[in-house]
Design a protein around this nucleic acid. Structure first.
Lengths: 363, 363
DNA sequence: GGGACCTAAGAAAACGCTTTCTTGTCCGTT
DNA sequence: AACGGACAAGAAAGCGTTTTCTTAGGTCCC
């Protein structure tokens, strides 16, 4: 075997893998194989190579690697907006799971803006991601098409086009929502409102439907005037709450389709001097970390970020690595009872009058 | 000029730039030049090229581009933890500014974990970022060294090693903190506590010092027992608040070194039935978006995320593009008064008794 | 009208890896 | 002892761009 000299660089200095090869007195191929843990390299040589890598502080150029191997090792994550606390928690989960599977992630947010959405797609395409999880809670059609056409494995939440290479994560909203409604009904509520997300988004409709269904199950007739449309933001919650306050016949409890909306409701209630839960019960959705310290701590329907991330990455990997791609994955939701829900106003005194129950003491 | 055929790909299909070149009947060099808007290409040809790009839906491979040009066009952003709402807001700003300057960003969080920190560095190095903004509010020494040694332009907040290629963003904590302390003092508070961040972080110390200094300026003697150490989380705020509650001589107002801490304080106060601001005034720091809807809305010291992002990217660009790199950049802070601050307990009645003032009515 | 220059576009050489192709060795067979 | 197969490591061919180097045409000017 001849000496390993290949690309002498200007100024005599070798760069990157060549420098390592020279220092370890092996060929660059061997260095590459060592780094990639190809089992056939002689342990002796491997040791030399690692030593050289160490001494030189060599860090592989990931772009060159991607180019050479044709694999980027990156999974994309498209979210709605990073400033909604639900998403950072999701990102964290996604990153942890991805890392454990040997992938890096590329996060991009649409900000509900078509321009940004295009940017998202372009980024994913330019970076040659191996798969994309679209967790915007509202499938953006053009985005889908563009990616699907190029055979990028995709995973959506709730709903998405039926096509090979595309998986779905079905969130069982009904379970959690039913628990929530039953919880309220059990407390004595009959007048329950719902603040949805933007109704043009699929997940918003899913959640609203789950609510109507659950209501019916409890024998409560849904009233259209108590179905408000929010937009997943605090401001939307505040506006919806204002509508509720304006109406003559107010609900005694409100469910929100996410925790930010609930936060807005809580805020507005505080503003007008309505006590939660004494005057109004509030239920959130998502159970973001902060729900626990809201005032009062928010009863919410939990959707595990980790489960979601886990499912998404499992789905993507299944496609990328060709290991039995499944079309659907399930994620459950469940009620977490805290202190934003209580008896409807008047109920307590009635009960006490009738000697049927002790007044509930809140901490 | 000869026909432009260069790399015929297997299966007859050309890929990437070659396909475009073939379709437009030009050489790949011309395609590249067109895309990069080199002014010397014939408009005629350029039009043909763009048409071909359009028809083929060609998207350049960004890794190949980075490799060929030696420029990644990526700026790194290292943050502490993505689940603290301050950071997503910062990321958003950073991304917007970067985008406007023609850069992409790579965000990585340390999670206060040395292992993760190493991962951060490695990522930045592997991806060949052109500069890194370290906004962890606590300079991690090893991280710095590794990057600085490789001549990656860096920008820190508050403090960092004095070295070429490294810039600093000096946050004027004193301005905002002084306003906060004066605000409290004006309301009549003399017993003011402070919950800092982890004192081993530089920015935590800076904020604490600004507080002590401001206190002195108002002629109030700082009391060590009212200087608590938090950790920038809600939980830390809760713990600190517990300490405050345990002490016999409680402060009438508390300043927190970030809003999450304040949120914890608010929560704990609620838990024990302390009314804010009637029984205790609370001032936050950062003024995250959510501060506005906390219960009660939080008086906070605002540090503009956009200013921070702007300064960071300006600094980095100055180094990368060699346009008069400056060592220091300034960012200011200022008080935003909301409803978590009021007269100290007793003050109102005293004043009323003495006929000096009307009791303040809160909305 | 024929050099001396420009100019614009093609050819080809990087860029830093991965991976296939080759080749030299060492063994086991017969 | 000659031959074939394994095996490990080097050589070299990509990967998809950018960029340098060349070269084919035009202009200009005397």
């Amino acid at each position: 075997m001849s000496r390993a000299v290949q690309h002498p660089k200007k100024r005599g200095k070798l760069l990157g893998i060549h420098a390592v090869a020279a220092k370890a007195r092996v060929s660059i191929a061997t260095v590459s194989r060592t780094i990639n843990r190809v089992p056939t390299v002689n342990p002796q040589m491997a040791k030399r190579v690692w030593a050289a890598i160490d001494e030189l502080g060599y860090v592989p150029n990931i772009q060159a690697r991607a180019l050479g191997s044709g694999r980027s090792g990156v999974l994309g994550l498209v979210i709605s907006e990073i400033t909604n606390p639900f998403f950072p928690e999701l990102i964290q989960g996604f990153e942890d799971v991805a890392l454990a599977s040997g992938y890096e992630i590329l996060v991009s947010s649409t900000n509900y803006d078509p321009k940004r959405m295009e940017l998202c797609i372009r980024r994913m395409l330019e970076r040659k991601v191996e798969g994309v999880a679209v967790m915007t809670f509202g499938i953006e059609q053009p985005l889908v098409e563009e990616l699907a056409e190029r055979d990028v494995p995709l995973v959506f939440v709730d709903a998405g086009p039926e096509r090979p290479g595309i998986s779905l994560i079905k969130v069982n909203y009904h379970h959690g929502v039913r628990q929530g409604v039953q919880h309220l009904a059990a407390l004595g509520h009959r007048k329950i409102g719902f603040i949805s997300g933007p109704m043009h988004l699929h997940s918003a409709r899913s959640r609203a439907e789950a609510f109507s269904l659950s209501l019916a199950e409890c024998g409560i007739k849904p009233r259209a005037k108590w179905m408000l449309e929010g937009d997943h933001t605090m401001e939307g919650g505040i506006r919806a709450m204002e509508q509720i306050l304006d109406s003559a016949d107010r609900p005694t409890a409100v469910m929100c389709s996410n925790d930010m909306t609930a936060l807005g409701v809580l805020h507005k209630a505080y503003r007008v001097g309505l006590r939660v839960p004494d005057d109004l019960s509030v239920v959130g959705f998502d159970d973001i970390h902060m729900a626990e310290v809201m005032i009062p701590p928010l009863t919410s329907i939990r959707m595990s970020r980790l489960d979601l991330a886990q499912a998404a990455i499992t789905a993507l990997r299944a496609h990328v690595e060709g290991t039995g791609p499944q079309r659907e994955y399930q994620v459950d939701t469940r009620l977490v009872v805290r202190e934003s829900t209580g008896y409807p106003p008047g109920a307590m005194t009635d009960l006490v009058k009738n000697g049927k129950a002790e007044p509930a003491r809140r901490r």
